[in-house]
């Protein structure tokens, strides 16, 4: 069963962070204990979306082996209705931290992979988290590939942008195939979503094009663009179609209806 889910894309701006936060919040709303991690160390953004106060410890500190994972976890459960638990583990947005993370060598990256793999024991087994979400940086960055290797299931977010389509296809065939990773594609910001009758046809076409199964399709919603990343949609707008689409995807993941 997929417990660690990485959200990745070839290009930036595909909606990874908004998707990660809202998918995690969907599970929390359903009573699960979840944590979302910001692994985009070059352009941290989770703190801005979640509007968290400054953290004492960051994910950077855990990967640098200067603190345990518990110190980095921020409990935001009071923002989600119900009994679920919602935690966040942020990347340090300071310029100095970004510079530091950009200059890490291969041995550090190898140890960072070990620390990410250790989260399975520390959080899933010992602290009974149900799901961990890794929001990664786009493209083939060390931190993203570490997250992909450590995850059980990878959601690849893509848009209709031509350069994104080509790059995503290449990334899936040349990177994901090598790691034999269970993968689902989310087609985001779709301008003219097909009627339900054509949905299956379109899903089959995308599966044939990308050679990976589709997790879902998200139309381009003006409300999401207007919110400028300042809302947890599934919490603030429970009746919005975006919230319903995410609930369907969460159900697929939970029922293991992913290929």
């Amino acid at each position: 069963m997929s417990k660690i889910i990485a959200v990745h894309s070839y290009k930036g701006g595909t909606g990874k962070t908004l998707f990660s936060v809202n998918l995690a919040a969907t599970f929390a709303k359903a009573g699960k204990k979840v944590c979302v991690f910001d692994l985009d160390f070059r352009a941290p953004s989770l703190f801005a979306i979640l509007k968290t106060p400054n953290a004492d410890f960051w994910l950077n500190d855990y990967l640098n082996n200067t603190c345990e994972i518990n110190k980095t976890l921020i409990n935001l459960s009071n923002r989600i209705p119900g009994n679920g638990k919602f935690y966040a583990c942020l990347a340090n947005p300071s310029t100095e931290a970004i510079r530091d993370m950009s200059s890490k060598d291969r041995k550090w990256e190898m140890r960072a992979l070990g620390r990410l793999l250790a989260l399975r024991e520390a959080l899933l087994k010992e602290q009974e988290f149900d799901y961990l979400f890794f929001d990664t940086s786009p493209g083939l960055q060390y931190s993203s590939i570490n997250a992909i290797v450590a995850a059980d299931y990878v959601v690849v977010a893509t848009t209709g942008d031509r350069s994104d389509v080509d790059g995503t296809k290449r990334m899936l065939s040349e990177l994901y195939n090598l790691f034999e990773k269970k993968t689902g594609l989310v087609l985001n910001k779709v301008l003219d979503p097909s009627p339900t009758a054509k949905k299956t046809e379109m899903q089959n076409k995308i599966k044939a094009d990308y050679q990976v199964p589709m997790l879902g399709m998200v139309p381009c919603f003006c409300e999401i663009l207007r919110a400028e990343g300042s809302l947890i949609f599934v919490q603030d707008k429970p009746d919005h179609p975006f919230t319903k689409i995410l609930a369907e995807m969460a159900k697929k993941i939970e029922n293991n209806e992913i290929e």
Binding site: R106, E109, M110, L113, Y142, N146, V149
Partner: peptide, 17 residues
């Protein structure tokens, strides 16, 4: 020699597994 992800990527399939 460090077993990082880029090294894993460059390995032949049988060793990578």
């Amino acid at each position: 020699a460090s077993l990082d992800v880029m090294t894993l990527l460059s390995m032949p399939d049988h060793l990578r597994k």
